[in-house]
Design a protein around this nucleic acid. Sequence first.
DNA 1: AATTTGACGAAGC
DNA 2: GGCTTCGCCAAAT
Length: 109
Amino acid sequence: MKPFTLNVIAIIKSIPEGNVMTYGQIAELAGSPRGARQVVRILHSLSAIHQLPWYRVVNAKGEIAFNNEEARFMQTFHLDNEGVAVSDNGRIDLEQYRYTPVDRIDPLP
DNA sequence: AATTTGACGAAGC
DNA sequence: GGCTTCGCCAAAT
């Protein structure tokens, strides 16, 4: 198991309620700026084992990241239950709900 | 050990 | 706004 994987797990577990993160963010914070797909794979494989809040992870567009209707419904349900507004289209306002660790944000102009 | 696979991302059209 | 192409790299086969 690589540190990257462990970092991904730790990061996902650190996402607070009412916030979401994108795969790209997680990958970058985990040490692999282009490792979004690995995040996908890790999350997909290990969410149950590590009890990860996979529903707090969305793609770069702020949308639910899959096609499965059941999982999609669960994700929207969980997020809405935590206070994250999900559009009818399954979209989330990243500007508002994206969880951005302090070491990552850059100042506005 | 080698190849394929992907809950993705960005750039191009 | 949607579709295609390319890159990415750990895990699954």
